[in-house]
Nucleic acid binder design. Structure first.
Lengths: 248, 248
DNA sequence: GACGATCTTACGGTCTAACAATTGACTTGT
DNA sequence: ACAAGTCAATTGTTAGACCGTAAGATCGTC
């Protein structure tokens, strides 16, 4: 008998087409904004049906490689995968697998200090202005408006990540922070005291970034993230049941 | 005239269906492995055509939320997004935007030390065995077999990331390391001397992980990654043109 | 000549109806 | 007991038609 023959995988036609188009797109030849052939052209050149061609294009669209518009002079254009796309996929991964909170906390502890260090080195005047404005809004909301406080807190971390001027790092940091803040909102553990500590932490971090002191910014964020993780975990344990809190 | 009415966005039927199914899937009600309705059932319950239903399912499949099999008792089942899915999307983001090498290096510098620290704390005996075996194979391949060396090097970092026992961190680390090693292969800068240094670095890191010393593992990986980044960047600068090397 | 309304047309968006391929359970034969 | 063949429900794929959209082209009016 023939050996070394595993299960024979018969790929779907749309997968094959999507893969080939993907290689074309990534292979330098296509610059962002370039037009792909129309669906009907692809039908005639590939010999596939229009349904299969459309499924292939839908795959590429989901991957963020292509953008499709209707109407005359519409069609599919090559695109750069957006930050939002990457963030969405990371969120899907995390939510779909219901990752434990401590795993998220660990990743965040890896990313955010680096974000802060780079932000201290590279922040523009505009970055600083944005951060200061958000920081003020957070201070004002800390006392009475919980929703606004949480929303602005997310904005603050977004702005900080943007100031790092590293797109990939920014997307990863935003995703992970967002997931953790979502957990915070679910647990509603944010007491007035905690909010005050968050404000103070922001002030100290912003100060280091204004001074351009990368190491200080890194250390302060590291401490802040660790503290936040501990608080959240304690809140989770308490919510799960006080009698099991010491099991870990 | 009516004001406050921006551009009216008319969503595609398949997008709407995909979004609604996605919410259902993520909303606890569905556990991985559960069956979705058949395409024709979805057609009758939604009132859409089968083509639109299939496009929606293809979106979910690309997002890794669903797995579809043909044949009787086939259909779409709920799935957890796999590591491979996430790695692919990150790679698409990085390649599609042709991120600069230093951005990748920075992210790697954030992730890998944390990987090593967690690996030192959590590695099982099996993890150690795998790492030792790969390390030996790398040593053997370092002298003569460049392809094997590069391949085993990737394996080593995969195994290290796995030993951290943090799925998200592992997926992120694998992606970024993979992208950097790809760049290494393109530039073919790996001289015998560099390879020897890589081997030594691996030995020192493995030693710290065997000892369970998280801080030492973190510091050693940090130093290693920084050194690797500098070497790669120098090689890239040299390849781009010796006269522009000092411009940075 | 300028400009707004209308027409034209090339494209994606959607639907219907069918047939092919796949696959696991069921049945049958020995 | 087991192997081969049959069956049926499901996805995979195709063909053809029509609708909706949007931007250029044309025409009419001032």
């Amino acid at each position: 008998m023939l050996e070394g023959l595993g299960r024979i995988k018969v790929p779907k036609s749309s997968d094959v087409l999507a893969e080939r188009l993907k290689q074309e797109i990534l292979s330098d030849a296509y610059h962002p904004g370039a037009m792909l052939p129309t669906e009907r052209d692809l039908v005639s050149t590939t010999g596939l049906s229009r349904g299969s061609v459309r499924e292939a294009l839908r795959i590429l669209e989901t991957q963020g490689l292509v953008l499709t518009r209707a109407g005359r002079y519409g069609g599919s254009t090559v695109a750069k995968p957006s930050d939002d796309h990457l963030v969405n996929h990371i969120n899907l991964y995390a939510r779909g697998r219901s990752l434990p909170l401590n795993a998220l906390a660990e990743v965040r502890l890896a990313l955010e200090p680096m974000v802060a260090a780079l932000a201290a080195e590279r922040r523009t005047d505009e970055d600083l202005e944005t951060l200061r404005a958000i920081s003020e809004r957070i201070d004002q909301a800390a006392e009475n408006d919980l929703d606004a406080f949480l929303a602005e807190n997310v904005n603050w971390h977004d702005a900080l990540a943007a100031a790092s001027h590293n797109d990939l790092l920014r997307a990863l940091a935003i995703s992970v922070s967002g997931l953790m803040f979502e957990a915070s909102r679910l647990k509603e553990f944010t007491s007035t005291e905690v909010r005050q500590r968050v404000c103070n932490a922001h002030h100290r971090i912003l100060e280091a970034i204004e001074a351009g002191d990368a190491d200080r910014a890194r250390r302060r964020v590291e401490r802040d993230v660790q503290a936040y993780g501990r608080i959240l975990e304690a809140a989770m344990a308490a919510a799960a049941g006080p009698d099991t809190a010491d099991a870990a």
